[in-house]
Every structure is written in C-alpha cells, then in structure tokens.
Design a protein around this nucleic acid. Structure first.
Length: 405
RNA sequence: GUGGGUGUAGCUCAGUUGGUUAGAGCAUCGGAUUGUGGUUCCGAGGGCCGUGGGUUCGAGUCCCAUUACCCACCCCA
C-alpha cells in the first residue's frame, strides 16, 4: 500500500466542504476590500525565497523542498505566498506603473518540518498583499479585513501587534542588541547563541526562561524607534482603539521572515495546540526593492487554512436532491435515463440494482437525499414514478414525463 | 534534527499473571410474513493483532530492532 507522504493530507469530505466554504467567503470579503485574485506558480526559483524570506530564517535554512530540475536549475516548492506575488508584481511591471495594487491568493505551501498538531508539510494559506500604499491606514485596513474574515467564521482569537522598526532605526538598535547579547552570551541557550549571529532580534521570542531572565535589561526596540516608526505604530494603535478592536502589544512578537518591517501582527487561538497562530502578517516596505523592483511599500497577511478550519464548526447539511431506484429489473434502464434528464436541474443519485422499497428508502435517507423516487412493477405499467418527500413524509405518483422536466 | 506516546475489523477501542476457535460498539449488507426510511430486534460478512527477529511447549500479550502515525521542542500559518 502506498501512503501519502509524511505531513501531507488528503482533503476529504466533510473537511473539503469547510475548505470550499472558507475560500468562497474569505474571497468575497477580500474583494469587498478591493483585492483581486492572483495565482502564482507553486514552483519557483530557489533564489526567490533566499532573497525574500531570508537565508537566516528557518524556512530557508532547513525547511525548503528544494531540488534541481532536469534543466539544472535549483527550484523550490513555495514555503509561503508573499515572495511569489511580489515576484509577479515586479515581473509584470506594476512597480513601474505606480499606484496601489491589491491582490489575494490561496493555495498549497510546503515546508519540510516535523508534523504536529496544526503543522503540516503541505498546508494551505489564504493571503493578501497590498502594494504601493505606505499610509498606516492600510495597516489598520488590513488588520480589519483579517478580523472581518475571522469574525465571519465565528472564530475566537487574540490579536497581537508589534512594530519591527525600519531600515533607519533597526540597524543601530540591532548593533546595540548584539553588543548586549555578546556580553551575556555565556548564559544563553544554544539557539540564542546562534541567533546572535543570524537574527538577534529573535532572542526575544525565545521560550527559555533563563534567556528571558537575562534579557530583562536588554535594549528594547520600542524605545529606540525612529520618529516615523513610532508615529506609525501609535497611529495604528489609536485607530484600533477608536474602532474598538481589542489587541495586545507583544514586544516579543517577531515574525519569522526577514522581510517584515514596522507593523507586525498575529491572530492566535488557544484552541488549536501549540502552533497557535491562525494568521500573521505585517508590513514589508523594502521587499519589492530587495527583489529588484522599484521601491514600493507593501503589507499583507496569510491565514493558515487548516488551522482555521480546525476552529470552524459546520452545520449538518440539509437534505437535498433526488434518489432514484428501481424495484423491477425492467425499470433499471428507465430509471437511469430519467436520472440523466433530471440532473440537468437537480442533484440526483441513482441506484443501479433492484432493491425492496424499504431498502431504497433507507439508502436515500442515509445519503441525505430529500426525495426518494422509485419505479416498480406497478409504476412501470402506468408510466408513473413514485416519489416520497422524506422530510414532509408526503408521497405521490407522478407521470414520468412530467417528472423528467 | 531531539524527546515522549500509540499501532488489534472500514472507524473508536477491549483483550486478565503468556494458554487453544481474537472480542465489543459504530458502520456495511441481509432479515423481522406481500411495496414505506431515521428508532428497535435478529443475523451475516469483514483481522498476516504495523513489519522483522528473539525468548517459550505455546506470543496480540514478554525482549530487541524497524517503520508509520500522534503530541511536544525548534520554528511558523
């Protein structure tokens, strides 16, 4: 027997109905906010992710499905969605065109990690990206849209926000931090020692208690922000306050992808295991430039669809459609033919063998059909079909010609 | 990559200090006097007990290895 690869799941009923339901409604909300659907390739040049997500990130460092194709190119199954959309944005010269562009997308992402609750090797994201808008109004707008989506599905969450600084205030802060960390390096965990060189800001996200203790007197970005970043963060917070959106400022919130700047946010849930981030995002004002485009501010988010679906309850499906069956060998062909016609307008299931009326009713009921329509010896003689409404419990004989309409 | 847990019927699981034909519930199919469903009752089919070694007269049960899944660390959606 051949099984699906580790961490890769089939999406079967009823799960796939939730999936469709989510995509449909999330897309509608995104469209209401002026976003347009885009689809980018699942496979991209490896360098795209190295340059956008960042070599220091775990995603690039150890989680990429990377291989050499038959042409000798290093390619990679996308580990996240933003890089591809940005690449497309630049390739199609929207950066040159100017103005504001808003996109949304959804599809599979791949990361070579050990699976656990809420974490798969192939998983699906729904994401949005907005280009060319530097106003912090858009930060608020994006958070509101994400909130709208989660609220639509009745999900309980906590919104965490933080600011990550920009190219002006981040580098000097980073230097101070590295100096500080180097002094206390001895006491830090191995991961944090590594982080000093790779991405020092992430030490704040370390769950090691000892590390957190040592970090108590560490320089904090919050107090070293440049005026612009400070202003923009205050703006976002005040607007959220005005709108009555609850949030927590979490100065330890560090996004795992190198391209984020300024506003970063995450929606977390306590009901889905240790991997509690349902959605996350933030601003990436330098990314378009990094990837060779004309400097264009950007901001976006991504929702982990599987994680979100874990939190959605679906109402049990209503009975619908017709079940057709025969009780007489001679009616089988007729039933098959009727089903074919009836399907032009209605959902129809057909039973290919003869069964007792009782058995037909039972099957129709179990398959969630609204009507059970059967042709037996009697009906055959009269050119009629016996139809029972399984909900109203009413039954009657209908002319076959009429029924087919 | 590192820990911990679990593999017995399609699904959820029992299975005694090792003992002869491996069980239940759910699901499936059939039946409960002639063509009326969801409830009930009866019956049937369905198992290389994850895989490979070992101990033993005898292993689902004990030991070793291996593999898959789950959970957690790391990290992220």
């Amino acid at each position: 027997m051949i099984n699906a690869l580790r961490g890769m799941k089939d999406i079967l009923p009823p799960q796939n109905e939730k999936f469709e339901y989510f995509i449909k409604n999330a897309s509608k909300i995104a469209k209401n906010y002026g976003f347009e659907y885009v689809e980018t390739p699942i496979l991209e040049e490896t360098n795209l992710f190295k340059r956008s997500v960042g070599e220091s990130s775990d995603i690039v460092g150890k989680e990429m499905y990377e291989f050499v194709d038959k042409g000798g190119n290093s390619v990679c199954l996308r580990p996240e969605g933003t890089a591809g959309v940005v690449r497309s944005f630049i390739q199609n010269k929207y950066d040159r065109a100017g103005g504001v562009k808003r996109f949304f997308y959804h599809g599979p992402m791949f990361r070579y990690e050990r699976p656990q609750k809420g974490r798969l090797r192939e998983f699906h994201q729904f994401g949005v990206e907005c280009f060319g808008e530097s106003s912090p109004y858009e930060d608020v707008n994006i958070i509101l849209m994400l909130k709208d989506i989660l609220d639509f599905f009745g999900i309980k969450y906590t919104l965490k926000i933080n600011t990550l600084g920009c190219e002006k205030c981040l580098p000097p802060f980073r230097e101070n931090l590295v100096d500080f960390l180097t002094d206390i390096e001895e006491g830090l965990c191995d991961d944090c020692k590594r982080r000093i060189k790779t991405n020092p800001i992430r030490v704040f996200d370390c769950k090691n208690e000892n590390c957190q203790k040592l970090l108590q007197n560490a320089p904090r970005l919050g107090s070293e922000l440049c005026d612009e970043c400070k202003e923009s963060f205050e703006f976002v917070k005040s607007k959220l306050d005005n709108l009555g959106v609850e949030y927590e400022v979490d100065s330890n919130l560090v996004r795992g992808l190198d391209y984020y700047t300024k506003t970063a946010f995450e929606f977390v849930s306590k009901d889905i295991g240790a991997q509690n981030a349902v959605a996350g995002g933030g601003r990436y004002d330098r990314l378009v430039e990094f990837l060779g485009g004309r400097a264009t501010p950007g901001i976006g988010f991504a929702i982990g669809i599987e994680r979100l679906l874990d939190l959605i309850e679906i109402e049990d499906d209503k009975k619908e459609g017709y079940y057709l069956g025969a009780m007489d060998e001679n009616a089988l062909d007729l039933v098959f033919e009727i089903a074919n016609k009836k399907r032009k307008k209605e959902k129809v299931a057909v039973s290919y063998g003869t069964k007792s009326l009782k058995a037909h009713l039972k099957t129709a009921d179990k398959n969630g059909m609204r009507y059970c329509a059967v042709i037996g010896e009697n009906e055959l003689k009269e050119g009629k079909i016996w139809v029972k409404d399984l909900v109203e419990k009413k039954e009657n004989l209908i002319d076959i010609d009429k029924f087919k309409e």
